[in-house]
Design a protein around this nucleic acid. Structure first.
Lengths: 199, 199
DNA sequence: ACCTGAACACCGTTCAAGT
DNA sequence: ACCTGAACACCGTTCAAGT
């Protein structure tokens, strides 16, 4: 009936399924079903499910807007917060992006975003890579935990508050996230103090 | 013939399978097969595979030795390196522990280890939790990527060097890892400068 | 070029029934 | 208390064949 299916169609259907049911619902059969096509048809457009997931991760990351700010510190904190916000908009997106990043499939874009800001701040290259790595791992790790915590609470697997928090305090909030980013930024600042190396 | 199977037996068999084949090989049927038992027998000892994996994660983390050092900085860097080393000893262990941690099943032990060192350093409680969180996410995130990179290279999916590294430099090494930890530690140091708050 | 149909080789989990 | 046997309801991937 309708014309052929495209990669974009597949990714759009996959994102809708992710939004409604998260990663556990994201089966090849389900995506195909939503498009009115056989599951094997997807393998003409993607070599594997992992490749499809990497494409999804890239799509989500492309929606992260450019950041503005007067100082590099402000821009780095804003970039981290913006990235977290983009991930929180889609169920399981943090885990999805973290996995795609670990597998080196696409999506080194967020690493580059951090690296560019830090390079612009005057950090030397070795420190740029170290700092970008620390920032990215914190954003992905924190947001993954946060998202899983929410969803577990929604399913009733963990009671909404108290009990499971023990002595760790209220674990997840924008303030806690920003505190972590600022701690890292203060560490970076430490590397900017000596503008004229003697040797 | 032999006596009944125990939780410890199951975890021992699971760890052996993890070592040889990684997480993809760790199927309930495989664990049961190794113990000469039906897969359903495992469900008397564990309510789910996730619970079993959490137990495995705890086992791996229990092998992390206590750290010594003259300064809190030295102890924190050593603890991070020791944790990484323990994870690198078992295939896919970093991903396993990161997932168990995200799911809040057991294993907040490493968080506490970092928190205790930082508390001893004189950091105030809110900063202790922020800093421990940043440290733990970096250790788990970096080591997960490192371990997956190695294994992909071993399987030939990524050529051993060059090419995939592009402009990111040599991505994984003990030095790079320690640099990241030291950046965080410098950020922490920043919070220790005002010993007598005025209000 | 793009998709169907059908199969292959797996999964985790449940549950009555045995001992 | 601990385990068997068998089923349920799924997976990702491949591949000849169609159009």
């Amino acid at each position: 009936m309708a014309g052929n299916i495209t990669r974009a169609d597949i990714l759009r259907a996959a994102l809708a399924i992710l939004d409604s049911g998260g990663l556990p619902a994201l089966a090849m059969r389900r995506i195909a079903g939503e498009l009115g096509v056989q599951q094997s048809a997807l393998y003409w457009h993607f070599n594997s499910k992992q490749e499809l997931l990497a494409g999804l991760a890239d799509d989500i990351l492309e929606r992260v807007p450019d950041v503005v700010g007067d100082t590099w510190r402000a821009r780095v904190v804003t970039l981290a917060s913006t990235l977290r916000a983009a991930l929180l908009e889609h169920k399981d997106a943090a885990e999805l992006v973290a996995t795609a990043f670990a597998f080196k499939l696409g999506s080194k874009a967020p690493f580059r975003r951090f690296a560019d800001e830090l390079h612009g701040a005057g950090l030397m290259q070795a420190d740029v890579e170290t700092a970008a790595s620390v920032l990215l791992h914190f954003v992905l790790g924190y947001t993954t935990n946060e998202q899983q915590h929410w969803q577990a609470a929604t399913l009733g697997a963990i009671d909404a508050e108290g009990t499971a928090e023990d002595d760790l305090g209220p674990q997840f909030s924008t303030d806690r996230f920003v505190s972590g980013v600022e701690l890292i930024v203060d560490g970076i600042d430490t590397r900017l103090q000596g503008p004229h190396p003697s040797a």
